[in-house]
Every structure is written in C-alpha cells, then in structure tokens.
C-alpha cells in the first residue's frame, strides 16, 4: 500500500514478517537451553547454624511438600516446571502448525496462543520468591538465604520464551483459513 510507516502510531508497517518464525525458533532455542542449567544448578543456598543447604527448583519443592506445605510446593512446581515446559511445547506446536496442516481449529490455537502470552509472565514468580527470601532472611549467623546460579538462568529462560511468544504473529494462524475460503469478510 505504499506507506512503510503507520500513519497513526509511526510504527514500521509490514504485512507479514517473513522472519517471524525464524525469530520464534531462535528465541525458543535460547530459552530452552537456559532452562537446563536452571534446573541442574542450585536455586537457593540456605545457611543455618551448622549446615549449608543447596536446593534446586525441584528439590526445594519436594522439601516443602515433606514439611507439609503441599499448596506452596504445588505453586512452585506449577510456576517453575509445568508452565515453562508446557509453554515450550505450545509455542513449538503453534509454530509447526502454521506451516503444516492440522486438525485443531483456529479458535483453539488462537486460545492456546492467548493462554501462552498471558501465563508466560507468571513463571517469574520463582525469581521473585528467591529475591524476597534472600533480601529478608539475612540474620547474621542464625540463618541466611542467598540466590544460587540457577536463578539467573531461570530468569533468562522466562524472558526469552516471552520474547519468543511475542515474535509469533497470531495472524499466521488465520492466514491458512483465509487462503482456503472465500477471502471476503465483511461486517
């Protein structure tokens, strides 16, 4: 249509970004790579009177469950394991589905995309818990909690998967339908 810039907000105009899927996959891979050290390295270093305790995300949650706080263990497991893993799966599935035929309806996939976009930020909860704990529990010799190296990888993983989801153009889901059907959509 001639104008490369939006007349309203000044943003660059492009009907479909041909590199959209490439960016989705690139950011997805970085996010997935960061997720591995996030689970193998310790997330929290707890120093009490006589012992130093290092716990990873999963072992921390298991410990909470042993102490009887099943609710908290569930929140941590859902926010740091279930959500990130299902997000990796969902973004990969969406990216594959716009290239190859699928039986899942566009509405379902659009909904999946919205859920991924909405829920992705919530994975940051574990980072915030670590931040609050390590700032709060600094009681000299009695007890202190410090963040472990996993926290930085986990934060990176969340950020890169959020960027990956944002790079995905939801209009691609509907383009396939528009090609197959009568392209007229009035009112």
């Amino acid at each position: 249509m001639g104008t490369p810039v939006c007349g309203r907000c000044g943003h660059k105009l492009q009907s479909r970004d041909p590199l959209s899927l490439q960016r989705v996959w690139a950011l997805w891979i970085v996010g997935a790579l960061c997720y591995i050290p996030a689970n193998t390295y310790p997330m929290l270093r707890t120093q009490t009177l006589f012992q130093v305790d290092e716990s990873t995300i999963i072992s921390g949650a298991v410990e909470m469950a042993h102490h009887g706080s099943f609710g908290i263990a569930a929140i941590i497991l859902i926010a740091s394991v279930v959500i990130p893993l299902s997000k990796f799966w969902a973004i990969a599935y969406l990216a594959v589905s716009v290239k190859s035929p699928t039986r899942v309806s566009n509405h379902r996939r659009q909904m999946l995309y919205e859920v991924v976009e909405y829920i992705g930020r919530w994975s940051m909860i574990d980072i915030f818990v670590v931040a609050i704990l390590s700032a709060l529990v600094q009681l000299k010799t009695l007890a202190s909690i410090n963040p472990g190296p996993a926290s930085i990888f986990f934060a990176l993983s969340v950020i890169f998967t959020m960027l990956s989801a944002q790079a995905f153009d939801s209009r691609m889901i509907w383009d396939v339908q528009a090609e197959n059907e009568d392209p007229k959509h009035d009112e």
């Binding site: 909470m64 706080s69 908290i72 930020r121 909860i125 574990d126 915030f128 818990v129 609050i132 529990v137």
Partner: peptide, 26 residues
C-alpha cells in the same frame, strides 16, 4: 505492558512468607 509484573511479585510474596513462616516471625 507484558513486562510490568507487580501482581506476580505480590503472589511471590505470599509464597515467600509461607516458606519463612516456620523459620522466623514475619
């Protein structure tokens, strides 16, 4: 908009509180 995470921090507080509750008075 997606990078404004105040509400997530609030839930994080709740989780952190429960974790510390048996260790000390908060």
């Amino acid at each position: 908009r997606p990078w404004s995470m105040a509400e997530i921090f609030a839930i994080g507080c709740a989780v952190a509180l429960v974790k510390v509750a048996d260790l000390a008075t908060v």
